[in-house]
Structure formats: structure tokens, C-alpha cells
């Protein structure tokens, strides 16, 4: 026979969580910045997509947009977005070894090796994109 679990009642105090919980500690702040990086990446890609759409509108429209993107406001945005994007890449490769198990025969590849290989892959991928897209 299964005994029912006894229920005890006693007063407890529930502490409220301040809305600023992520500002009070560096670790949680960095976590929030990591999540926020996705927003800047998305905004950049939407700008990029708009630029691509202008390729259909002809050289003048595309060139003018390129001019606009060289203004102070956009440059500031690109600097911020670049920092966030690199932070995203760094954090993504850093936790890669935790997320993915890679086995070579009977051996589990250590987390650090996975991260190192991923970082190297990132550099290679960037170089390839740079080579293909610029002349």
C-alpha cells in the first residue's frame, strides 16, 4: 500500500526578485548581453537584406545606400553590432564542447579541443567569405 504523503502547513516568506537582478552581478549581466547580441545581429541582417534588395534597383540606388551606411550614425551602429556579434561567436564556440559530444573511436574529444577547432573553423570561414565577396 502506498502511504499518502503528509501535508504540513507552515508560513513561508517569498522574497521578491528585483527587476534589476541581471544588473547586480557581472555574470548575469554578461548573460543578458549574450542574449541581446542576437538582437543586434538580427538588425544588422535586416539592413543587409535591404541592401541586397537594392541590387535589383540598379547601381545608383545601391551606391547611394552604401554612402548612407558610411555616415556617423551607421558607423556607430556597426561598431556596436560588431562587438556584439564577436561576443556571440566567442560565447557560442566556448560552450560548443559542453553541448556537443564528439567521439573519436572510444575517446571523447575534450571540450577545449572542440572549442579550439571551432575557433579555427570560424577564422577559416571568415577568410573564405572575405575572399569570395571582395575583389
Amino acid at each position: 500500500m502506498k502511504q499518502p504523503e503528509p501535508e504540513y502547513t507552515y508560513p513561508t516568506y517569498h522574497r521578491p526578485i528585483p527587476a534589476t537582478w541581471w544588473l547586480r552581478d557581472r555574470k548575469y549581466f554578461l548573460f543578458m548581453m549574450r542574449e541581446l547580441s542576437s538582437f543586434f545581429i538580427a538588425v544588422f541582417l535586416l539592413i543587409y537584406l535591404y541592401g541586397l534588395s537594392l541590387l535589383s534597383k540598379g547601381q545608383a540606388a545601391y551606391g547611394q545606400f552604401q554612402e548612407t551606411l558610411r555616415s556617423g550614425g551607421f558607423t556607430l551602429f556597426f561598431v556596436v553590432a560588431f562587438i556584439f556579434a564577436v561576443y556571440h561567436s566567442w560565447t557560442w564556440w566556448s560552450i560548443m564542447g559542453k553541448v556537443q559530444v564528439v567521439r573519436l573511436g572510444d575517446h571523447k574529444v575534450p571540450e577545449r579541443v572542440i572549442t579550439a577547432v571551432a575557433l579555427a573553423g570560424w577564422v577559416v570561414a571568415s577568410a573564405v567569405v572575405l575572399f569570395v565577396f571582395t575583389r
Binding site: 555574470k27 548573460f31 559530444v101
Partner: peptide
């Protein structure tokens, strides 16, 4: 959301963050 602090504070190095991510994959 993989804050990752569970793993940092674990006194026994269990690494719950790793367990959760691997289960997601």
C-alpha cells in the same frame, strides 16, 4: 537559457548545464 551558473557554483563539478544542453541536442 544556458546561463551556465549552475555549473559554476556546483561544489561537486556535476555540470548540470552540460547535461541539459546535451539532452536538448
Amino acid at each position: 537559457t544556458l546561463v551556465g551558473e549552475c555549473t559554476e557554483v556546483c561544489p561537486k563539478r556535476v555540470d548540470p548545464a552540460m547535461a541539459i544542453q546535451r539532452t536538448k541536442v
